[in-house]
């Protein structure tokens, strides 16, 4: 064709700075003040979890019966509990439990839910029907009740709590990925790949999973927060992590007996739970806006 026109076109086109997709998402995420606040809180909690030994001024389990239920002071910045243990140290160590539960429970749900979702969405048919009915059944029991039933069956303790919360989060991941896969399956680039003779597993890993990552990441972020909350709820009614392990919900539960005399026993662990959930929600919102600018209002 006309050569001069072509070069002229390329010259007049506005030049955009080339940037990787990841960098672009990070730029958008960074500009979101709320998301950055969320990330700061999250990082604080993560460093609590990783370096609890260095950050906590006291042993979280050692009792000091001479100094029980002290209000916040210079020695104990958040006071002491009914057995004289330093509340701040217990919250710092509690972060380790909460973060572990959050990450592992969501990890279980993420892997199991995505696998089921891909199978349902990609193959459809009877298998899809059976799995989805099972998911419906799981969803017809409120998460907390499902958690309670599973923990009752398996017994309390960190590992079982993580399994219980993981299982009750599976349906949500399964549904999200199934919906994305079903719409992606009909897209032309997938059909083109299939026409080119690609195997199913290759198509799923190469074309389908990367394209439904955005909703999955957002869901995972928010789910970490809700898993922390669920773990605290279980411990609160005595079916999760049991004392003397410093878990936020369990701390609240014992603090409840001293509500009138020493309200700080309940206030601070509750604030910690809230901060964790709040941080994850803020980050989830920020990620949603950064990953899918169309959704932003």
């Amino acid at each position: 064709m006309n050569n001069t026109t072509n070069t002229a076109t390329s010259q007049t086109l506005p030049v955009y700075k080339k940037r990787g997709q990841g960098a672009e998402i990070w730029r958008r995420f960074r500009q979101n003040k709320n998301a950055m606040v969320g990330m700061c809180i999250f990082l604080v909690l993560v460093s609590f979890a990783l370096f609890a030994e260095f950050i906590a001024p006291y042993d979280p389990i050692e009792q000091d019966l001479l100094n029980i239920m002290q209000t916040p002071s210079r020695q104990h910045i958040l006071g002491t509990d009914e057995l004289g243990r330093d509340i701040f140290s217990r919250i710092v160590y509690g972060s380790r439990i909460s973060m572990t539960v959050g990450l592992i429970a969501v990890g279980i749900a993420f892997v199991a839910g995505s696998a089921l979702g891909v199978i349902c969405g990609y193959y459809g048919g009877i298998l899809d029907n059976v799995i989805m009915r099972f998911v419906d059944i799981l969803m017809s029991i409120p998460a907390i009740l499902l958690n309670i039933s599973i923990v009752a069956a398996l017994g309390t303790g960190l590992q079982n709590v993580m399994i219980a919360i993981g299982i009750s989060n599976v349906p949500r991941f399964c549904r999200i990925i199934r919906a994305s896969v079903m719409s992606l399956r009909e897209q032309e680039f997938v059909e083109a790949s299939r026409a080119a003779g690609a195997k199913d597993l290759y198509i799923v890993m190469r074309h389908i999973i990367p394209n439904c990552l955005a909703p999955l990441i957002i869901q995972a972020t928010v789910s970490i927060g809700s898993s922390i909350l669920q773990c605290a709820s279980l411990s609160f009614i005595g079916l999760g992590i049991v004392p003397p392990t410093p878990e936020w919900g369990a701390m609240l539960s014992t603090g409840r007996d001293f509500l009138r005399k020493a309200p700080h026993l309940t206030t601070f662990p509750g604030l910690a739970i809230m901060a964790a959930v709040y941080a994850m929600n803020l980050m989830g919102d920020g990620l949603r806006d950064a990953l899918d600018p169309k959704l932003k209002n």
Partner: peptide
């Protein structure tokens, strides 16, 4: 709304009880 969403129910219940009852 963001705070309310993050607040654990049981904790909020205890705080309300503390304030309005105790």
């Amino acid at each position: 709304a963001m705070m309310g969403n993050a607040m654990p129910n049981f904790w909020q219940g205890l705080l309300l009880m503390l304030l309005f009852s105790l």
